[in-house]
Simulated assay, not measured.
Amino acid sequence: MAYVLQRKLLLINTTILRRGHKMDAEQQVGVLLLEAAVLMVVGMGVVFGFLMVLVFAVQAMSRLLKHSGPAATTAAVATTQSAAVPAAVVAAISVAIEHHQKQNKG
């Protein structure tokens, strides 16, 4: 639709210029504003279309990851448990986390 409107504007401009009529400043400003409006609508349409595609892609990926999510977390837990982290390291990490949370509460 915007392409058709732009073609009509171009046709009007060329017809006016071929007939030897010169546009005054107000007519030129009107034509330029109309062309700017067409360009703005086309640009906004392209951005809106891209954002809609992006939203649907993110939703599709989220659905896909929900189905494969639990298997991945159980695999991660199994590898963590098999690594056998020493109890002293786990205790040190827990104390550090608690200290950090207490410092950043207020």
Score class of each variant (00 low, 15 high):
1 M>N: 08
52 M>G: 02
70 P>S: 02
58 V>T: 05
58 V>K: 14
47 V>A: 12
38 V>A: 02
97 I>A: 10
53 V>E: 10
103 Q>F: 05
37 A>L: 05
99 H>S: 11
27 Q>F: 02
89 V>M: 11
79 T>F: 04
15 T>Q: 11
87 A>D: 13
58 V>W: 07
41 V>T: 05
30 G>V: 01
68 S>F: 11
41 V>Y: 03
98 E>G: 15
14 T>G: 02
37 A>Y: 03
1 M>C: 05
106 G>E: 09
64 L>C: 06
95 V>N: 15
103 Q>M: 11
105 K>M: 14
63 R>I: 09
100 H>L: 02
55 V>P: 00
63 R>C: 04
90 V>W: 03
68 S>E: 15
101 Q>T: 07
103 Q>N: 14
10 L>Q: 13
17 L>N: 05
33 L>G: 02
77 V>Y: 06
69 G>P: 00
43 G>H: 07
35 E>K: 05
90 V>L: 07
30 G>K: 15
15 T>W: 00
20 G>S: 01
38 V>T: 05
81 Q>R: 10
46 V>C: 07
102 K>V: 13
81 Q>D: 14
64 L>K: 10
63 R>Q: 09
26 E>R: 00
47 V>E: 08
54 L>Q: 15
88 A>P: 00
36 A>S: 11
80 T>L: 15
27 Q>G: 00
1 M>D: 03
24 D>M: 03
82 S>G: 05
9 L>Q: 09
37 A>S: 08
24 D>V: 01
3 Y>V: 05
84 A>M: 06
17 L>F: 03
89 V>Y: 11
38 V>R: 01
102 K>P: 04
25 A>R: 07
56 F>L: 14
106 G>A: 07
101 Q>F: 13
68 S>D: 12
9 L>M: 13
6 Q>W: 03
25 A>E: 12
69 G>K: 12
61 M>D: 12
24 D>E: 05
31 V>P: 00
72 A>I: 12
36 A>D: 04
93 I>K: 08
61 M>Q: 13
